[in-house]
Amino acid sequence: MEAARDLGAIRALIAKHKRWDMIFGLCGLLALMIGVLTFAALFVDMAIDGIPRLNWDFFTSFPSRKPAQAGILSAWVGSSLVMLVTAFFAVPLGVAAGIYLEEYAPKNWVTDVIEINITNLAGVPSIVYGLLALGLFVYQFGFGQSVLSAGLTLALLILPVVIVATREAIRSIPQGIREGAYALGSTQWQVCKDHIIPYSMPGILTGVIIGMARAIGETAPIITIGALTFIAFLPGAPLKAEPPFVSFEWLFSGFTVMPIQMFNWTSRPEAAFQQNAAAAGFVLVLMTLAMNGFAIWLRYSLRKKIKW
Protein backbone atom coordinates (compact mmCIF):
# COMPACT_ATOMS: atom_id res chain seq x y z
CA MET A 1 0.00 0.00 0.00
CA GLU A 2 1.05 3.51 -0.70
CA ALA A 3 2.42 5.55 2.19
CA ALA A 4 -0.07 7.97 3.70
CA ARG A 5 0.21 11.37 2.03
CA ASP A 6 1.01 14.45 4.05
CA LEU A 7 -2.53 15.82 3.91
CA GLY A 8 -1.67 18.66 6.26
CA ALA A 9 0.84 20.10 3.79
CA ILE A 10 -1.59 19.79 0.88
CA ARG A 11 -4.29 21.58 2.83
CA ALA A 12 -1.90 24.35 3.80
CA LEU A 13 -0.96 24.79 0.16
CA ILE A 14 -4.59 24.91 -0.94
CA ALA A 15 -5.37 27.43 1.79
CA LYS A 16 -2.53 29.61 0.54
CA HIS A 17 -3.77 29.44 -3.05
CA LYS A 18 -7.30 30.18 -1.97
CA ARG A 19 -6.15 33.33 -0.20
CA TRP A 20 -5.13 34.67 -3.61
CA ASP A 21 -8.48 33.63 -4.97
CA MET A 22 -10.15 35.75 -2.36
CA ILE A 23 -7.79 38.70 -2.80
CA PHE A 24 -8.46 38.86 -6.52
CA GLY A 25 -12.18 38.42 -5.96
CA LEU A 26 -12.19 41.39 -3.61
CA CYS A 27 -10.16 43.54 -6.04
CA GLY A 28 -12.58 42.73 -8.84
CA LEU A 29 -15.59 43.50 -6.69
CA LEU A 30 -14.03 46.82 -5.71
CA ALA A 31 -13.37 47.71 -9.34
CA LEU A 32 -16.94 46.84 -10.23
CA MET A 33 -18.36 48.85 -7.34
CA ILE A 34 -16.44 51.99 -8.31
CA GLY A 35 -18.31 52.03 -11.60
CA VAL A 36 -21.69 50.92 -10.37
CA LEU A 37 -21.74 53.02 -7.21
CA THR A 38 -20.63 56.15 -9.03
CA PHE A 39 -23.52 55.82 -11.45
CA ALA A 40 -25.91 54.93 -8.65
CA ALA A 41 -24.80 57.98 -6.62
CA LEU A 42 -25.24 60.29 -9.59
CA PHE A 43 -28.61 58.83 -10.41
CA VAL A 44 -29.87 58.97 -6.82
CA ASP A 45 -28.59 62.52 -6.39
CA MET A 46 -30.37 63.58 -9.57
CA ALA A 47 -33.51 61.73 -8.54
CA ILE A 48 -33.60 63.43 -5.13
CA ASP A 49 -33.25 66.83 -6.78
CA GLY A 50 -35.53 66.15 -9.69
CA ILE A 51 -38.38 63.92 -8.56
CA PRO A 52 -40.18 66.66 -6.57
CA ARG A 53 -40.40 68.62 -9.84
CA LEU A 54 -41.96 65.74 -11.76
CA ASN A 55 -45.63 66.16 -12.36
CA TRP A 56 -47.99 66.14 -15.30
CA ASP A 57 -47.44 69.83 -16.01
CA PHE A 58 -43.69 69.30 -16.31
CA PHE A 59 -44.31 67.05 -19.34
CA THR A 60 -46.98 69.21 -20.93
CA SER A 61 -45.44 72.69 -20.49
CA PHE A 62 -43.09 74.60 -22.72
CA PRO A 63 -39.92 76.08 -21.25
CA SER A 64 -40.47 79.32 -19.42
CA ARG A 65 -38.58 82.14 -17.75
CA LYS A 66 -40.29 81.15 -14.52
CA PRO A 67 -38.73 77.88 -13.34
CA ALA A 68 -41.88 76.66 -11.63
CA GLN A 69 -43.85 76.87 -14.91
CA ALA A 70 -41.11 75.52 -17.18
CA GLY A 71 -41.57 72.06 -18.68
CA ILE A 72 -40.00 69.65 -21.15
CA LEU A 73 -42.80 69.35 -23.69
CA SER A 74 -40.84 70.66 -26.66
CA ALA A 75 -37.76 68.68 -25.55
CA TRP A 76 -39.31 65.23 -25.29
CA VAL A 77 -41.37 65.71 -28.43
CA GLY A 78 -38.22 66.93 -30.25
CA SER A 79 -36.17 63.99 -28.96
CA SER A 80 -38.84 61.53 -30.02
CA LEU A 81 -39.19 63.00 -33.52
CA VAL A 82 -35.43 63.12 -34.01
CA MET A 83 -35.17 59.49 -32.89
CA LEU A 84 -37.88 58.57 -35.37
CA VAL A 85 -35.96 60.13 -38.24
CA THR A 86 -32.72 58.57 -36.99
CA ALA A 87 -34.21 55.09 -36.93
CA PHE A 88 -35.91 55.59 -40.28
CA PHE A 89 -32.57 56.26 -41.97
CA ALA A 90 -30.06 54.33 -39.86
CA VAL A 91 -31.85 50.97 -39.84
CA PRO A 92 -32.27 50.31 -43.58
CA LEU A 93 -28.89 51.82 -44.46
CA GLY A 94 -27.02 50.01 -41.69
CA VAL A 95 -28.70 46.67 -42.21
CA ALA A 96 -28.24 46.77 -45.98
CA ALA A 97 -24.58 47.74 -45.61
CA GLY A 98 -24.01 45.00 -43.03
CA ILE A 99 -25.66 42.35 -45.19
CA TYR A 100 -23.71 43.45 -48.23
CA LEU A 101 -20.40 43.29 -46.37
CA GLU A 102 -21.09 39.86 -44.89
CA GLU A 103 -22.89 38.10 -47.72
CA TYR A 104 -22.11 39.83 -50.99
CA ALA A 105 -18.82 41.73 -50.81
CA PRO A 106 -15.88 39.97 -52.47
CA LYS A 107 -13.10 39.30 -50.00
CA ASN A 108 -10.46 41.70 -51.29
CA TRP A 109 -8.48 44.72 -50.13
CA VAL A 110 -11.24 47.21 -51.00
CA THR A 111 -13.60 45.40 -48.62
CA ASP A 112 -10.85 45.33 -45.99
CA VAL A 113 -10.35 49.09 -46.27
CA ILE A 114 -14.10 49.69 -45.96
CA GLU A 115 -14.25 47.41 -42.93
CA ILE A 116 -11.41 49.20 -41.17
CA ASN A 117 -13.05 52.52 -41.91
CA ILE A 118 -16.37 51.47 -40.46
CA THR A 119 -14.68 50.38 -37.25
CA ASN A 120 -12.89 53.73 -37.13
CA LEU A 121 -16.08 55.67 -37.83
CA ALA A 122 -17.55 54.28 -34.64
CA GLY A 123 -14.76 56.06 -32.77
CA VAL A 124 -15.05 59.46 -34.46
CA PRO A 125 -16.02 62.16 -31.91
CA SER A 126 -19.65 63.12 -32.34
CA ILE A 127 -18.83 66.81 -32.71
CA VAL A 128 -17.11 65.96 -35.98
CA TYR A 129 -20.38 64.51 -37.26
CA GLY A 130 -22.01 67.74 -36.15
CA LEU A 131 -19.60 69.81 -38.24
CA LEU A 132 -20.10 67.57 -41.26
CA ALA A 133 -23.86 67.78 -40.88
CA LEU A 134 -23.76 71.56 -40.52
CA GLY A 135 -22.00 71.86 -43.86
CA LEU A 136 -23.84 69.09 -45.67
CA PHE A 137 -27.42 68.85 -44.39
CA VAL A 138 -28.00 72.34 -43.00
CA TYR A 139 -26.37 74.41 -45.76
CA GLN A 140 -25.61 72.24 -48.80
CA PHE A 141 -28.91 70.38 -48.88
CA GLY A 142 -30.73 73.33 -47.35
CA PHE A 143 -32.56 71.30 -44.69
CA GLY A 144 -31.88 74.09 -42.19
CA GLN A 145 -31.70 73.73 -38.45
CA SER A 146 -34.44 71.16 -38.46
CA VAL A 147 -35.61 67.84 -37.09
CA LEU A 148 -34.58 66.29 -40.40
CA SER A 149 -30.98 67.57 -40.17
CA ALA A 150 -30.68 66.37 -36.58
CA GLY A 151 -32.16 62.97 -37.37
CA LEU A 152 -29.84 62.49 -40.32
CA THR A 153 -26.83 63.55 -38.24
CA LEU A 154 -27.61 61.09 -35.49
CA ALA A 155 -28.35 58.42 -38.11
CA LEU A 156 -24.82 58.90 -39.47
CA LEU A 157 -23.49 58.75 -35.94
CA ILE A 158 -25.08 55.40 -35.11
CA LEU A 159 -24.70 53.90 -38.58
CA PRO A 160 -21.40 52.16 -37.67
CA VAL A 161 -23.05 50.71 -34.56
CA VAL A 162 -25.91 49.33 -36.65
CA ILE A 163 -23.55 47.94 -39.30
CA VAL A 164 -21.34 46.24 -36.73
CA ALA A 165 -24.36 44.80 -34.87
CA THR A 166 -25.80 43.53 -38.15
CA ARG A 167 -22.55 41.86 -39.11
CA GLU A 168 -22.12 40.26 -35.68
CA ALA A 169 -25.66 38.92 -35.85
CA ILE A 170 -25.14 37.57 -39.36
CA ARG A 171 -21.86 35.95 -38.41
CA SER A 172 -23.52 34.04 -35.60
CA ILE A 173 -25.67 32.18 -38.15
CA PRO A 174 -24.04 28.77 -38.70
CA GLN A 175 -22.60 28.23 -42.17
CA GLY A 176 -24.60 24.99 -42.34
CA ILE A 177 -27.84 26.98 -42.54
CA ARG A 178 -26.54 28.98 -45.51
CA GLU A 179 -25.29 25.86 -47.26
CA GLY A 180 -28.61 24.13 -46.62
CA ALA A 181 -30.46 26.98 -48.28
CA TYR A 182 -28.05 27.26 -51.20
CA ALA A 183 -28.16 23.50 -51.73
CA LEU A 184 -31.90 23.79 -52.40
CA GLY A 185 -31.19 26.13 -55.31
CA SER A 186 -31.62 29.50 -53.59
CA THR A 187 -30.11 32.65 -54.98
CA GLN A 188 -28.13 34.93 -52.72
CA TRP A 189 -31.10 37.24 -52.28
CA GLN A 190 -33.43 34.35 -51.42
CA VAL A 191 -30.95 33.21 -48.77
CA CYS A 192 -30.79 36.75 -47.38
CA LYS A 193 -34.50 37.48 -47.33
CA ASP A 194 -35.70 34.06 -46.13
CA HIS A 195 -32.88 33.21 -43.74
CA ILE A 196 -30.14 35.71 -43.01
CA ILE A 197 -32.40 38.71 -42.29
CA PRO A 198 -35.03 36.94 -40.19
CA TYR A 199 -32.50 34.94 -38.16
CA SER A 200 -30.28 37.94 -37.47
CA MET A 201 -33.19 40.24 -36.57
CA PRO A 202 -32.83 39.86 -32.77
CA GLY A 203 -29.18 40.90 -32.92
CA ILE A 204 -29.84 43.71 -35.38
CA LEU A 205 -32.69 45.17 -33.34
CA THR A 206 -30.61 45.01 -30.18
CA GLY A 207 -27.81 46.89 -31.92
CA VAL A 208 -30.21 49.47 -33.32
CA ILE A 209 -31.75 50.20 -29.95
CA ILE A 210 -28.38 50.42 -28.22
CA GLY A 211 -27.30 52.87 -30.93
CA MET A 212 -30.49 54.87 -30.42
CA ALA A 213 -29.95 54.94 -26.67
CA ARG A 214 -26.57 56.47 -27.38
CA ALA A 215 -28.02 58.94 -29.86
CA ILE A 216 -30.78 60.18 -27.60
CA GLY A 217 -28.21 61.52 -25.16
CA GLU A 218 -26.04 63.19 -27.81
CA THR A 219 -25.73 66.93 -27.37
CA ALA A 220 -22.65 68.16 -29.20
CA PRO A 221 -23.63 67.42 -32.82
CA ILE A 222 -27.15 68.73 -32.23
CA ILE A 223 -25.82 72.01 -30.84
CA THR A 224 -23.41 72.22 -33.75
CA ILE A 225 -26.16 72.03 -36.34
CA GLY A 226 -27.93 74.77 -34.42
CA ALA A 227 -30.77 73.31 -32.43
CA LEU A 228 -32.45 76.08 -30.47
CA THR A 229 -32.28 76.04 -26.73
CA PHE A 230 -35.55 77.79 -26.08
CA ILE A 231 -38.50 76.49 -28.04
CA ALA A 232 -42.03 77.33 -27.12
CA PHE A 233 -43.81 75.63 -29.99
CA LEU A 234 -44.22 72.09 -31.32
CA PRO A 235 -43.37 70.94 -34.84
CA GLY A 236 -46.41 70.72 -37.10
CA ALA A 237 -48.62 67.69 -36.62
CA PRO A 238 -47.95 64.84 -39.07
CA LEU A 239 -51.67 64.21 -39.62
CA LYS A 240 -54.17 66.76 -40.81
CA ALA A 241 -57.90 66.92 -41.19
CA GLU A 242 -57.85 68.22 -44.77
CA PRO A 243 -56.28 66.44 -47.78
CA PRO A 244 -53.64 65.15 -48.30
CA PHE A 245 -54.00 64.31 -44.59
CA VAL A 246 -50.27 63.77 -43.98
CA SER A 247 -47.79 66.56 -43.55
CA PHE A 248 -44.03 66.48 -43.45
CA GLU A 249 -43.75 70.04 -42.28
CA TRP A 250 -42.50 68.82 -38.90
CA LEU A 251 -39.34 67.51 -40.57
CA PHE A 252 -38.25 71.07 -41.36
CA SER A 253 -39.32 72.57 -38.08
CA GLY A 254 -36.97 74.02 -35.50
CA PHE A 255 -36.66 71.85 -32.43
CA THR A 256 -34.88 71.16 -29.22
CA VAL A 257 -33.99 67.87 -27.52
CA MET A 258 -33.75 66.66 -23.94
CA PRO A 259 -30.02 67.05 -23.36
CA ILE A 260 -30.04 70.58 -24.80
CA GLN A 261 -32.95 71.54 -22.59
CA MET A 262 -30.97 70.19 -19.65
CA PHE A 263 -27.88 72.07 -20.71
CA ASN A 264 -29.88 75.26 -21.02
CA TRP A 265 -31.24 74.94 -17.49
CA THR A 266 -27.93 74.00 -15.89
CA SER A 267 -26.39 77.16 -17.29
CA ARG A 268 -28.98 79.32 -15.44
CA PRO A 269 -27.98 80.79 -12.08
CA GLU A 270 -31.31 80.14 -10.30
CA ALA A 271 -31.39 77.05 -8.07
CA ALA A 272 -34.91 76.26 -9.23
CA PHE A 273 -33.67 75.76 -12.79
CA GLN A 274 -31.04 73.33 -11.49
CA GLN A 275 -33.91 71.35 -10.09
CA ASN A 276 -35.58 71.40 -13.49
CA ALA A 277 -32.35 70.16 -15.07
CA ALA A 278 -32.17 67.31 -12.58
CA ALA A 279 -35.75 66.35 -13.33
CA ALA A 280 -35.10 66.42 -17.09
CA GLY A 281 -31.93 64.36 -16.57
CA PHE A 282 -33.88 61.85 -14.57
CA VAL A 283 -36.41 61.52 -17.38
CA LEU A 284 -33.63 61.19 -19.97
CA VAL A 285 -31.90 58.41 -18.01
CA LEU A 286 -35.22 56.64 -17.67
CA MET A 287 -35.79 56.93 -21.42
CA THR A 288 -32.36 55.41 -22.07
CA LEU A 289 -32.88 52.63 -19.54
CA ALA A 290 -36.28 51.93 -21.03
CA MET A 291 -34.77 51.61 -24.50
CA ASN A 292 -32.05 49.28 -23.25
CA GLY A 293 -34.60 47.28 -21.31
CA PHE A 294 -36.70 46.99 -24.45
CA ALA A 295 -33.62 45.77 -26.37
CA ILE A 296 -32.96 43.08 -23.77
CA TRP A 297 -36.58 41.98 -23.77
CA LEU A 298 -36.71 41.94 -27.57
CA ARG A 299 -33.56 39.87 -27.85
CA TYR A 300 -34.77 37.46 -25.23
CA SER A 301 -38.21 36.96 -26.75
CA LEU A 302 -36.99 36.66 -30.36
CA ARG A 303 -34.09 34.38 -29.47
CA LYS A 304 -36.40 31.88 -27.86
CA LYS A 305 -37.57 30.90 -31.32
CA ILE A 306 -34.09 30.49 -32.78
CA LYS A 307 -31.64 27.92 -31.49
CA TRP A 308 -28.50 26.68 -33.13
Binding site: P174, G176, I177, E179, G180, A181, A183, L184, H195, Y199, K305, I306, K307
Partner: peptide, 11 residues
Protein backbone atom coordinates in the same frame (compact mmCIF):
# COMPACT_ATOMS: atom_id res chain seq x y z
CA UNK B 1 -30.05 17.89 -53.68
CA UNK B 2 -27.83 17.44 -50.67
CA UNK B 3 -28.07 16.21 -47.10
CA UNK B 4 -25.32 17.43 -44.79
CA UNK B 5 -23.20 15.89 -42.07
CA UNK B 6 -24.79 17.80 -39.23
CA UNK B 7 -28.59 18.10 -39.39
CA UNK B 8 -29.18 21.69 -40.47
CA UNK B 9 -32.91 22.39 -40.32
CA UNK B 10 -33.88 26.04 -40.69
CA UNK B 11 -35.23 27.74 -37.58
Amino acid sequence: SMVFQKPNPFP
